[in-house]
Computed example of a mutant assay.
Amino acid sequence: MPNYKLLTPGPLTTSHSVKEEMLCDRCTWDEDYKGITQKIRTQLLELACVQEQDYTAVLMQGSGTFAVESVMTSAISDNDKVLIVTNGAYGERIVKMAHCIGLNYREYRVAYNAYPNEAEIKEMLEEDQAITHLVMVHCETTTGILNPIEMIARVAREYSKTSIIDAMSSFGGMEINIHELGIDYLISSANKCIQGVPGFGFVIAKRDKLLACEGNARSLSLDLFDQWSEMNKDGKWRFTSPTHVVAAFSKAIDELHAEGGISERYRRYQNNNQILRDRLERMGIHTYITAEKQSPIITTFLFPSEDFNFEDFYLYVKERGFVLYPGKLTEVDTFRVGNIGEIYEEDIQTLCDIIEDYMEGCQHA
């Protein structure tokens, strides 16, 4: 199979050494393997800038969505009500979760290219005293918008609400000081900015909040408290864990540190993103999100013309070694380009050369 560069928000291009970690089979009961699990949990807390006496890390089998749903079903009781802030498909997915679980919830929806309004959120909290939890996606990969995590965390603290942040596409790729922000639950996944492979998500939770979750879950396999309780004994997962993925993730964390930590990885991602946006802008391919709201993770681009054929464009780029991402917007035609993973400036420059050749070919056709 061709070894494409994935310019997607995860799964993404991984290093050869991360892939190599999956060549060995491991036993879930083995002490060495359980040691890998505990190593990961400790390192995640370090990356989150929190102390073990205040926070804990729980790993959960499945995609990132499984981890989000584990928090939603476990952290919110029948007596609670959650306000879900949405401006993209992944926030809307959380609304679907709340509906399926049977939670008492309210949605605050804004346009896909807009920030949630602080005054409007405060007004909702003041008029609806039943709300106990606030949920928001940090980086909405629907568009690439980077939502105001500081504002949401501050409002949650001001109104004594439990904060839940879906940081699926941002954690590990930009600094998030969970302790300073006072976030209660932060959720991410193995196959995003830490540059592992798909197979599990993780939750960084305040210990006191997690301890209060016992008995809340409406799911056996997604019970976050029970998963933590078992894992906290000696590193054993409750049910069969993705052993190859766990080993790869441990290696990916080591490589994050070797790169210079989150700050250096952010610098690389930001540089990738800036080059990409600047060069495509010069070709007449404009961004959907304005620069001040743009994350360094993934960028949504508007079709350059009405007759632009994305399928033809996609195949042209893929045949030259790069896989792009279709858009998720309904009101406008877009495509997306991610720049996380083992992607460097030379990769972005090569991609832009390919896109430039394609656009010139279209003009002469």
Rank of each mutant, 00 (worst) to 15 (best):
Y4E: 13
L7P: 07
L7V: 07
T13G: 10
S15M: 08
H16L: 12
V18A: 05
E20M: 11
D32V: 10
G35C: 04
I36H: 00
I40V: 05
C49I: 01
Q51D: 14
Q51E: 15
E52C: 03
E52G: 04
D54A: 10
T56I: 11
A57N: 08
V58S: 08
F66I: 02
A67F: 07
S70F: 06
S74F: 12
S77V: 09
N79D: 12
K81H: 10
K81M: 10
I84S: 08
V85E: 01
V85G: 02
T86K: 03
N87A: 09
Y90Q: 14
R93W: 08
I94Q: 13
V95W: 06
A98L: 00
C100F: 11
R106I: 07
V110G: 06
A111Q: 06
A114I: 03
P116Q: 03
E118M: 04
E120K: 10
E123W: 06
E123N: 13
A130S: 15
I131V: 11
I131T: 08
H133A: 09
L134C: 03
L134A: 07
L134N: 08
T141A: 15
T143F: 00
G144A: 12
I145V: 10
P148E: 09
P148Q: 11
E158P: 11
Y159L: 09
Y159V: 13
T162I: 15
I164F: 12
M168I: 12
S169Q: 13
F171R: 04
G172L: 00
N177A: 02
Y185V: 10
L186T: 14
I187T: 10
I194C: 08
G199I: 04
G199Y: 05
I204S: 08
A212I: 03
C213R: 06
E214A: 10
F225V: 05
D226Y: 14
E230R: 10
E230Q: 13
M231D: 10
R238S: 01
T240H: 15
P242V: 06
P242I: 07
P242S: 11
H244W: 04
V245A: 15
A248P: 01
A248Q: 03
A252E: 00
D254V: 04
E255R: 02
E259A: 11
G260F: 00
S263D: 09
Y269E: 12
Y269P: 02
Y269I: 05
N273M: 12
R277G: 05
D278Q: 15
E281V: 01
M283N: 13
H286W: 05
Y288N: 01
K293T: 04
Q294V: 05
Q294Y: 05
S295K: 09
I297R: 00
F301R: 00
F301T: 03
F303I: 00
P304S: 02
F308L: 09
F310V: 04
E311I: 03
Y316D: 12
V317S: 00
V317Q: 01
K318H: 09
G321F: 03
P326E: 08
G327S: 09
E331F: 13
T334N: 07
G338F: 06
I340K: 04
I340V: 15
D347H: 11
Q349L: 14
L351W: 06
C352Y: 08
C352P: 05
D353R: 10
I354A: 02
Y358R: 04
M359C: 12
M359F: 11
E360P: 02
G361Q: 14
Q363H: 13
